[in-house]
C-alpha cells in the first residue's frame, strides 16, 4: 500500500519542531484522515481541532504545505506525496499546542460589533416581507463557517500583527452581512472606519482565494463597504447635499 510522510509541527506557545510520521494512504483520503490515523496509532496526544469532517464547521484549519486550508476538505491525491507534506498551525494566531491555535481574538472582535437591529415588522403578525433577490448577497456572506483562514492569510494580521487596529476579512464580511441586511437599521460605518480599520485592507484578495466557502470577500463585501465609507466621509459634494437634506 502507498504511504505518505507528514511533517507535523509539534509544540506550543514556547516553540516546537517538526516531527515526521508516515502513514498509509487509501483512496479518497483527506489530510484530516491522515492526522487521525497518526493520532490513533503513533501520537495519541497530537492536538488538532475538528468536528464535522465535511467542510461545514470550520474547525480543522491549518497550513498544508504552507497554504491555509481545511484539513477535512484537502484530498491527498490533490497534493504531491513524493515528498513530505508539512502541516503547521495557522500562523496568524498564537499556538496552543501542535495544530490547535488560540483564535479567541476573533470571538472578542465579533462581540465588539453592533448587533442586528431590525426595523419594525411589516405585517401585523410580526413578520417581514423580503424579496429573495434582496438577500442573495447577504446569504452569500452568511455561508461563512468561521474557519478564520481569511484572517490567517491576511498580511495585515499575519505579517504586521495589527489585530488591535484591524478586524480582518472575516469581520468585514460579518459587518457587510449586517449592513446589507434589508431589515437592519443600525449604522456601523463610523466604527468600521475607526476601530474596524477597514483602511488597512489594500485589497490583495488573498482572503478571497483561501475561502473554502468561495465567498467573494474582497469584491462583494470589502470593496462595497469601502465605497460606503468614501460616500459617507470623504465625498465633499455628498457632504454638502447631506447638510441641506432634511433629517429623517
Amino acid at each position: 500500500m502507498k504511504t505518505a510522510v507528514f511533517k507535523i509541527w509539534r509544540g506550543d506557545a514556547n516553540g516546537g519542531e517538526f516531527s515526521e510520521y508516515s502513514t498509509e494512504v487509501t483512496e479518497g483520503m483527506v489530510v484530516l484522515d491522515a492526522v487521525h490515523a497518526i493520532q490513533a496509532q503513533q501520537a495519541n496526544d497530537l492536538a488538532c481541532r475538528w468536528n464535522c469532517k465535511a467542510g461545514k464547521c470550520g474547525s480543522c484549519s491549518a497550513e498544508i504545505n504552507g497554504v491555509p486550508k481545511l484539513m477535512c476538505m484537502t484530498r491527498l491525491d490533490a497534493i504531491p506525496l513524493d515528498e513530505p507534506v508539512t502541516l503547521e498551525p495557522m500562523r496568524a494566531f498564537p499556538c496552543i499546542r501542535d495544530l490547535a491555535t488560540d483564535v479567541s481574538w476573533n470571538f472578542r472582535v465579533k462581540k465588539s460589533i453592533k448587533k442586528f437591529n431590525p426595523r419594525p415588522p411589516d405585517a401585523p403578525d410580526g413578520t417581514w416581507r423580503i424579496a429573495q433577490e434582496d438577500i442573495d448577497r447577504v446569504q452569500e456572506f452568511r455561508k461563512c463557517i468561521e474557519c478564520f483562514l481569511c484572517q490567517d492569510v491576511c498580511h495585515v494580521l499575519r505579517d504586521h500583527h495589527l489585530q488591535e487596529k484591524f478586524i480582518g476579512p472575516r469581520f468585514l464580511v460579518f459587518v457587510a452581512a449586517l449592513e446589507m441586511h434589508p431589515l437592519d437599521t443600525e449604522d456601523r460605518l463610523p466604527e468600521l472606519k475607526t476601530a474596524g480599520g477597514i483602511g488597512y485592507c489594500n485589497i490583495t484578495k488573498c482572503c478571497t482565494k483561501v475561502c473554502p466557502e468561495h465567498i467573494t470577500i474582497t469584491d462583494n463585501a470589502i470593496i462595497p463597504l469601502k465605497e460606503r465609507i468614501v460616500d459617507e466621509f470623504y465625498d465633499p459634494l455628498g457632504k454638502l447635499l447631506k447638510f441641506f437634506r432634511p433629517k429623517i
Partner: peptide, 19 residues
C-alpha cells in the same frame, strides 16, 4: 422560527417575500 428572523436569520423566501 419567526423569532429567529427577528434575530437576524436570513431564510430563503417565497415569491411574496415570506419564509
Amino acid at each position: 422560527v419567526r423569532e429567529l428572523e427577528a434575530w437576524g436569520a436570513v431564510f430563503d423566501r417565497t415569491a411574496d417575500g415570506r419564509i
